[in-house]
């Protein structure tokens, strides 16, 4: 007799995907260390992290992309919520949010191939920030997937330096006004 347990322990397996959490915290010294420390000691994995104060300067907004491989998201959220300085946590649904990332990249660009780079810059509506004798610095703001594509296309030319900000995101806005007669 080997009955199947009614409730199984939450597993630590996953599909290698990520989830985006928007975490509002009090804008106080050491709060980022508390969040990062919690991730470290509970074995959760941060893929990227963007932090800045909100319009209300008492609070900061953290956009954390979490590897869902390491831990069940429910545990990540509940443990985060226990931090006294964490005010609220929102799990962003990619389909219902607008995501953006900024990339700055320095790419090899001999005068002979500069035109090809400029073609890509035009197609992606990127911006040339600086030009050297054999390199160009360009930036692109877009959805993380589009930024990936741009980086991929530049790679064969030789990327000398690249800095991505990590993803920031906001929920999509309502498309219809609420029915004033609704209960």
């Amino acid at each position: 007799m080997n009955p199947v347990p009614t409730g199984s322990a939450p597993g630590r397996g996953g599909d290698g995907g990520t989830t985006t959490l928007v975490v509002h915290v009090e804008n106080k010294a050491g709060v980022l260390a508390r969040v990062a420390g919690l991730f470290a000691r509970r074995g959760f994995n941060i893929e990227s992290l963007a932090v800045a104060p909100t319009a209300d300067g008492r609070f900061s907004r953290l956009t954390i992309v979490v590897g869902v491989d390491a831990a069940p998201m429910e545990q990540v959220v509940k443990q985060l919520d226990k931090l006294v300085n964490v005010v609220d946590i929102e799990e962003l649904n990619p389909a219902a949010s607008v995501e953006r990332e900024l990339m700055m990249v320095t790419v090899r660009a001999d005068p002979s191939i500069r035109g090809q780079i400029l073609d890509l810059v035009r197609i992606f509506q990127a911006t040339v920030l600086n030009v050297g004798y054999d390199e160009m610095m360009v930036s692109l703001t877009g959805s993380p997937g589009r930024v990936d594509d741009f980086e991929e296309l530049l790679r064969p030319y030789g990327i000398a330096d690249v800095q991505r900000t990590g993803k920031v995101a906001l929920s999509k806005l309502a498309k219809t006004a609420p029915d004033p007669l609704a209960p």
């Binding site: 009955p3 199947v4 347990p5 009614t6 409730g7 199984s8 322990a9 939450p10 069940p72 429910e74 545990q75 509940k78 443990q79 919520d81 226990k82």
Partner: peptide, 25 residues
């Protein structure tokens, strides 16, 4: 833990929501 109380349904009461479902659903 995988062989703990294998036939049991679980009611779990805790003031800390992070304990709910941490080890056993």
């Amino acid at each position: 833990v995988g062989e703990f109380a294998p036939l049991a349904k679980i009611i779990h009461v805790d003031i800390d929501s992070a304990e709910l479902g941490k080890v056993r659903r």
